[in-house]
Amino acid sequence: MKPKILIVGEDGFAMDTGHYIINLDYARAITEAGGLPLLAFDWNSAADYAEIADALFLTGGPDLLCYRWGAYYKDFSEMPPFSRTRDDLDFELCDRFLKAGKPILGVGRGCEVINVALGGTLYKDIEKATGKAHPDENAPKGGWNATTEQAKFSFHSVGLQAGTKLASVLNAEEQVNSCHHDAPNALGTGLKAAAIAPDGIIEAIEHESLPVFGVMWHPERAAGDLPADGRIFKHFVELCK
C-alpha cells in the first residue's frame, strides 16, 4: 500500500454552496513521489484524518489571519484575502499530526502554518516590515495575470544551511520560484532555518527532531525556465516508510 498523503486545499465561496478546490500540480507531485493523494475537507473529521493518513501536506493559498500569532491589523487596508475556515482546518490538522509524530510538509502558506502552529510569527508583508522588496526591486512582479509564463514568477537563489536534513536532499545553493509577500519571522519551538535567501528572508524551515519541514517556494510547479522539482516530495514520501 502506498503511503496515504492527506492534502489540504483551497476553501472557496464562489459557487452558491461554497466549494473546495485543489490545484492538480500538488496531487501530481505526491503521486510521482509514490504517495496516494487524498484531499481533506471536514474540520469535524480532523481526528479521523490524523489516524487514517500517514502524512500531512499543507499547500499554498491566501495569507493566514495574523491574530493566529498574536498580531493585529491597524486598519482594513492591511487585511489580506483570507479564509477563516481554511485556517481552522489547517491548524487543527497540523496540531494533530504534530502530536501523532507523523510527517508534515508545508509549501508556501503551509510552511507558515507549521511555523505559527509551533509558536512562531510571520512578517505580514516583507516589504513593509523590512523596507526591501522580496526577492528584489528588479524582479518581475507580473503575478498570475502576467501575459508570459516567465513574468508570472519572481526567482531568487536560496542557500541551504549546513547540517540540515533539507541540505542532504537539495544542493548547497538552489534557484527557486518566489510568489509570497509574507514569510517566517521568529521561528517556532523546535524549528530551525533550513534555507535562507540572499536578502536574509527565511525560505525553508525544519524541525530538529520531528519529520516536519516547510519551504516558501513552490517545488510542485514548473515556473518559467525552472521545472517542477520532485526531490522534496520524494524525501517527504520516504519519511512515511
Binding site: 472557496g12 459557487m15 454552496t17 461554497g18 466549494h19 473546495y20 478546490i21 485543489i22 490545484n23 492538480l24 500540480d25 496531487a27 484531499l39 475537507f41 498570475w144 508570472k152 510547479r221
Partner: peptide, 10 residues
Amino acid sequence: FHGLSLTLNK
C-alpha cells in the same frame, strides 16, 4: 486561473 484543479461543492 493558473492550472487545472479538482473541485467539489461543500
